[in-house]
Design a protein around this nucleic acid. Structure first.
Length: 276
DNA sequence: AATTGTACCTGTCAGC
DNA sequence: TGCTGACAGGTACAAT
């Protein structure tokens, strides 16, 4: 499900429902997704804490809690949060239930059980998986072209792998990587070295524009994704290449090609995006 | 050090 | 109809 625009949409939809609420009690139905600390301690340490704010870093959600703790959550492929009245019918694949102090429950549901939770002291991101090593936020104001060019220049390999590397840029996943490369008219298998200045600029502009459009559309709902209120996004209506293999390119009519690049299914227009 | 492969899970869909 | 295999928004870790 979730890349930067989806996680940001989940964050915004959850804020009015959970911020300022106190966690009365936590139930862990499947402990495998609790990475730190052990599930029993996780449950014990969360009880009684207040949710002070909800932030996002890359694809991670950060629930800032009272007494300087942070609940770090990653939705991975199919994780989702939703809020419902206490005691509502239990959806299949519900793994964690946070009982709130307003007779509502924040529930974590995840078909594939890839989602992750860490409960760490605020700022101790090195204890929260990949959170500590994330690159900059591509939609932040201070993410200028100069900043991007420096990151780009220090990396090598193929464009698709670069965009997916969370330590270079935070928050881009498989959908937006393909859409960004199409918007920039760059081939996913092209090497970083050898790009002209104007091509690097086009890539920078495409990263900003495509991600911002994704946020404005409240994310992409191709399969499971919905926000914290159960609402779908609309960016799937604007996809030019992702999930469009075999269709005609909207720009030139050429059949879109699908191939595995950087270990991920990748769709591109062989004409508009040129040769690798 | 950096890249590639594999593991983690369940559901869906195409092909036989 | 039912079986099998490929594939799905993403890391994390082992192997090379």
């Amino acid at each position: 499900m979730p890349e930067l625009p989806e996680v940001e949409t989940v964050r915004r939809s959850l804020i009015p429902l959970v911020v300022s609420r106190r966690i009365k009690r936590v139930e862990v139905l499947y402990g495998g997704i609790i990475k730190k600390p052990h599930p029993a301690e996780f449950v014990e340490m969360l009880a009684g804490r207040k949710i002070v704010s909800l932030e996002r870093r890359g694809k991670y959600l950060l629930f800032q809690l009272s007494e300087n703790y942070t609940l770090v959550a990653h939705l991975r492929m199919t994780g989702r949060f939703w809020v419902c009245p206490a005691g509502a019918e239990l959806a299949k694949h519900t793994h964690v239930i946070f009982h709130l102090d307003d007779h509502q429950e924040l529930r974590f549901v995840d078909i594939r059980k890839f989602g992750l939770f860490y409960l760490v002291p605020a700022g101790k991101w090195s204890e929260a998986g990949g959170l500590a090593t994330l690159g900059p936020e591509p939609l932040a104001e201070d993410f200028t072209y100069e900043v991007f060019r420096d990151i780009f220049s220090s990396a090598k390999g193929r464009l698709k792998a670069f965009l997916l590397d969370q330590t270079r840029l935070a928050g881009i996943g498989n959908i937006y990587a393909d859409e960004i490369l199409f918007a920039a008219k760059l081939h996913p298998e092209r090497n970083l070295t050898g790009l002209k200045d104007e091509e690097i600029q086009a890539l920078y502009q495409a990263i900003r524009a495509v991600l911002q459009r994704g946020v404005d559309c409240r994310g992409t709902s191709v399969r499971d994704y919905v926000d914290g209120r159960g609402q779908k996004g609309s960016f799937q209506k604007e996809l030019k290449v992702y999930d469009q293999a075999g269709k005609d390119c909207v720009a030139c009519g050429t059949k879109l090609v699908k191939r595995v690049v950087a270990g991920r299914g990748t769709v591109f227009c062989p004409k508009c995006q040129g040769d690798a």
